[in-house]
Design a protein around this nucleic acid. Structure first.
Lengths: 197, 197
DNA sequence: TCGACTATGCGACATGTGTTGACTAATTGA
DNA sequence: TCAATTAGTCAACACATGTCGCATAGTCGA
């Protein structure tokens, strides 16, 4: 039973180097063109060593972007469900600012050449976080019939869809606040009579 | 200027073989484990020939599933926006039935090991089709502020999110009609006062 | 400080990947 | 039917891919 790759400082250093390397490369070229060999060279790590930590480029890049995923998921879950319809809540605006600041990365990851693993991970984290939020807090009564998990998956997908479309197609044309507001209005179009206590 | 691979019957036959082969293989194994070599063997086509038609497995499988994508996109666009809230419109139910009938395929394609190209294509087609529908027909007045493209991207993402979550996690627990109805209620929660003419 | 891990480096292996050039054979138009 | 066109086959190439066993060196507990 191999106790593979624990908290050994050597392993941590190697993983850090690999994550840095893959982000550098991903900023320059498409994901599919990033080879394990080039990755190993860039990180100054033996090629065989890479496989001790990550089975493929996808897993590596997804792990490297775990912080970004967590940022998005947390921000989404922090939005007060009963915030006014004509103004996006602060966490949502910060979420879109974060995406705007890393627009090329998100565009590359969510595009046709992107990482299915990253997209799935982002949706999964968002769904989990939102479901938890919905289970704990009160949802507006309009949605009482809908299972919490479904609702979370719906919104997670919607956010990923809007973000993907925004960063790829028309980020020049639609400013950040406008995108955030649009998303918020789409979410809020319905429960216009605040919360349900 | 190579007039590459037109409607020559030989090319069509080859492409048909390749599409059939990739779907057969995809039904048995993960996408990442499908090699161009195995594909060529299965389709009884020379390995070099595959590259004359498709640059990678992703492109091939996405092309092979183009009909499925079109089916989903068309069904989504056919839904009458003002259908009653407590009953999913027929096209939407057919959409979910189609997904249920090909659940393993969708699960594989939209999962972590899936195809970013397919997911992007599905969202893109959905977005385009819905945007066209929104532009032509009337949208409920609640959404007047929101750009049509944003709205379409929102819904496209939401549908993909729900489908992905449904087919991967709990298709056993949530029956088809219930999933369709949940999606419909999430969409309809708001514009409860019919259309806006 | 020493001895037991164990992550990493290294070289090698079979296999898969794109690509090329020359040859074969199917298709099409005249 | 014949000639021109072009998709397909085939062999070969340099390179990338996973995966070995073994040697080295960094790490941690005693």
């Amino acid at each position: 039973m191999s106790a593979v790759h624990s908290d050994d400082p050597r392993a941590q250093r190697t993983r850090a180097r690999l994550k840095a390397a893959v982000l550098e490369l991903a900023a320059q070229q498409e994901l599919a063109t990033i080879t394990m060999s080039a990755l190993a060279r860039r990180a100054e790590v033996n090629r065989a060593t890479v496989y001790l930590h990550y089975p493929d480029v996808d897993s590596l890049v997804t792990d490297a972007l775990e912080d970004a995923v967590a940022t998005v998921a947390r921000a989404a879950a922090l939005c007060p469900l009963d915030a006014p319809r004509d103004r996006a809540p602060l966490p949502l605006e910060e979420l879109f600012e974060h995406v705007a600041a890393n627009a090329t990365t998100y565009a590359r990851m969510l595009g046709p050449q992107g990482s299915a693993r990253f997209a799935a991970r982002l949706r999964e984290r968002l769904t989990a976080e939102l479901a938890q939020r919905f289970a704990g807090g009160r949802r507006p009564a309009v949605w009482d019939d809908v299972p919490v998990e479904m609702h979370a998956a719906y919104l997670a997908g919607a956010l990923v869809g809007v973000v993907a479309h925004w960063v790829t197609a028309r980020r020049e044309h639609v400013p950040t606040e406008e995108a955030a507001l649009a998303f918020w209005q789409l979410f809020r179009s319905g429960s216009r009579s605040t919360t349900t206590d």
